[in-house]
Structures are given as structure tokens and as C-alpha cells.
Simulated assay, not measured.
Amino acid sequence: MDQPEGIRLQKALANAGVASRRVIEQYIVEGRIRVNGRTVTELGTRIDPDTDLIDVDGTAVQLDVSKRYVMLNKPTGVVSTMKDENSRPDLRRFTKEWPERLYNVGRLDAETSGLLILTNDGDLAHVLAHPSFGVTKVYIAKVSGTVTAQTIAQLTRGIELEDGPIKADKARLLDVSRGSSLVELTLHSGRNRIVRRMMAAVGHPVDELVRRQFGPLHLGTLPVGKARELTKIERGALLTLSRQDSPAPAASEQRRAHDSPQENE
């Protein structure tokens, strides 16, 4: 007699650390679990953990425990690559405690510090880094001069750069003191050095720049130069975001073969 294909849904979710099998069975009966976007209520449901996408209460679940997701607070002076051809300080020093080969999602330029995601999940990295998916990032910029309310309005209304118009999703003035200002900018653009170019265009060159947020992830109190694994809640939020606009697997492979993400700020 042939064995049924796949494994039981409650076993897969219990193995992923979501809850006990008994609790998960209750979730199934209550209609709180979806497989590939469709709600399942049958306790005998079987899945393929390598290909099926599962979410509980709308939050994606990581079934593949070989995938690693790390948050780094990148210092200034470090280039966003795993091996720099010019022997500049790179990201390798921050990945030594993990056995997997991790790669950065997008980039921060050497003079910019802040939140950088490191992972071995190529599908997620592609979705999050590629400009076409428009993942929101939040930056805090210390700039020269006194930024006015009119300048903030100009940033959200839009300005013209050499490679086309751009506007911040949100902008707010946090502080002004001793000839400099702190500005918070929220953007979904992946254009190269976009924050620095925007602030220079409105007459306030950036002196210091840090990325505080990437999609649903917040830097929080993570010290500069430190890295940590994402929590289960953070992984769920990140995977949920990556699946919202993610193309089908075949299309995803084709996109990665032909597209390359632009450099972030």
C-alpha cells in the first residue's frame, strides 16, 4: 500500500515550533491556518514542507529550519559585501558564529550605519532587495543646517534628481541644534545613495546616516557592530512581507537570473 505523500500539517507546524500538535489541531478546526493561501479545516491535511507556504492567523511560518535570518547593526567603515576585492572591512566578521553561508539583503554604503539583514534564503533576499517590491526603509539623517517645515514638505512633495523625480513616503524633523538637524525619512526607493542625494538637493548635506527600520524590522537597542538572529515573530513578519508580492517559484527563478537589485542607501 502506497504511503500518503507529504506530512501532516500539525506535525510540520509542531516541528517548526508554532505550538503543540493538540493546539495546532484546534487552530485547524477553527480555520486559523492557510496552506498556499487557502484555509484548511481538515485534520488529515498533508503538506510538502519544501514547497507549500503556510500561515497562521495571517502570519507566515518558517518550515525550513535550515534557513537563517540575522539582523546586523552595521558600523560605518564597513562595506556591504562578504568579500571585498580591495581588502576593505567587510561583513564576514559578523557571521562567524553561524555555520551557514549568509549573504546581505541589499546594501548600505560604507559611510552609512544601521539595519542590514543577513540570510541564506535566496527567495526572501530577492524580494526584499529588489526595488520593484518597494520595501519601506526608515532612516535618521544628521544634516548640515537648520531644516525648516517648508523643506520637510518639499521632501514629501517631491524633488527632481538627475535620474528622475523622487519623494519621501514620510519625512519629519526630529531636532535642530548647533547648526545641524535630525531628519527622519521613510522611503521605499532602492535607488543608490538616495537619502544623501535627496538631502543634498534641498541644501542640507548628510553628515551622519543610520537605517533604523527595514520593512517590519526595527533596529531597537541592538548595539553598533552586533548581530543577532531574528525572533520567531520577526521571522514571521519578514516572511509574510516577502510572500505578499512574491512571484511563483518558476517566475522567481527567472527574475533572479535576469534582474539584480540596485544598491540601497
Rank of each mutant, 00 (worst) to 15 (best):
R88A: 10
R88N: 03
R88D: 05
P89E: 13
P89L: 10
P89N: 03
P89A: 10
P89R: 07
P89V: 12
D90M: 01
D90Y: 01
D90C: 07
D90P: 05
D90F: 08
L91W: 05
L91K: 06
L91D: 07
R92V: 14
R92C: 10
R92W: 09
R92Y: 12
R92I: 12
R92L: 13
R92G: 14
R93K: 15
R93T: 13
R93Q: 15
R93M: 15
R93D: 11
R93C: 14
F94W: 15
F94Q: 08
F94G: 07
F94D: 06
F94E: 14
F94A: 04
T95E: 04
T95Y: 04
K96Y: 14
K96T: 15
K96H: 15
E97W: 13
E97R: 14
E97H: 10
E97G: 14
W98R: 03
W98D: 03
W98K: 06
W98M: 03
W98A: 11
W98E: 00
P99V: 05
P99F: 13
P99T: 05
P99I: 09
E100K: 04
R101M: 00
R101C: 00
R101Y: 01
R101A: 00
R101Q: 00
L102A: 01
L102T: 01
Y103P: 06
Y103W: 06
Y103E: 06
Y103T: 11
Y103Q: 13
Y103H: 07
N104W: 09
N104R: 01
N104G: 08
N104E: 08
N104S: 06
N104L: 01
V105S: 01
V105A: 09
G106W: 02
G106P: 08
R107E: 05
R107Y: 02
R107C: 04
R107K: 02
L108I: 04
L108G: 01
L108C: 10
L108R: 10
L108S: 07
D109Q: 08
D109Y: 13
D109A: 04
D109T: 11
A110L: 11
A110W: 11
A110T: 14
A110G: 08
E111S: 13
E111F: 01
E111Q: 12
E111K: 15
T112Q: 13
S113T: 13
S113D: 15
S113Y: 11
S113P: 01
S113E: 13
S113C: 04
S113G: 15
S113K: 14
G114T: 06
G114A: 09
G114W: 03
G114R: 03
G114K: 12
L115G: 15
L115Q: 11
L116A: 12
L116D: 08
L116G: 02
L116I: 04
L116K: 08
I117S: 09
I117C: 04
I117Q: 12
L118C: 10
L118G: 04
L118D: 11
L118P: 10
L118I: 11
L118W: 03
